[in-house]
Nucleic acid binder design. Sequence first.
DNA 1: TCGCAGATAAGCT
DNA 2: GCTTATCTGCGAT
Length: 208
Amino acid sequence: MSLQQKLTQDFFTRPDSVTIARDLIGKHFFSSFDGVLTGGMIVETEAYSGLNDAACHAHLGRRTKRTQVMYEQGGIAYVYLIYGIHALFNIVTNAEGIADAVLIRAIEPTEGIEEMQLRRGLTKVEPRLTAGPGLVTQALGISTQHNGTDVNGNEIWFEDRGVLVPEAQIVAGPRVGVAYAGADALLPWRFSLKGSRWVSKANPKYTL
DNA sequence: TCGCAGATAAGCT
DNA sequence: GCTTATCTGCGAT
């Protein structure tokens, strides 16, 4: 039982989104809609911070309808659309009023693989199933309508299944697609599980 | 199977 | 228009 510990809000209200992003590697991420459970182990994340991070949508207290939910207390889903096509899932962190978040970029599928294949339109189990932030949301059936969802609820949640990831197994590097952020784009705030085939293969053109 | 490169993608503001 | 990506095919392994 203690092997399937659901992560509670205090995990996400901690002040350092970079630490949380690293801690999430090896944790599990699930969704359940209409009784269909889908998800897997997190192998890639990125940290964003509202205060000192030009790559963040809510940099320097920018407050728009889109970024509003980032200012909520940790433990809330921030889902937004990128390139008009892909929904990306972030988990809001830190205290209310501080716009920090962690982006879930890739997972290793463990539950509901057939359903995820169906949603992705794939017949084989391959990295294209969940290796990429827009792919994870599609496989788990998450869309922008889930923006603001509480991850302590029973639709979207995280679990600690007792997987211990040694520090040496975690790779830190620059984030993807944030070249516009200048020097902040170089911050090693992207974390991934070393050697996992489920880590996204981002186009180097966007990794800077 | 994996990595690269170029082409392509569409809803929100 | 803009955008914190994905798809597809190709060649190397």
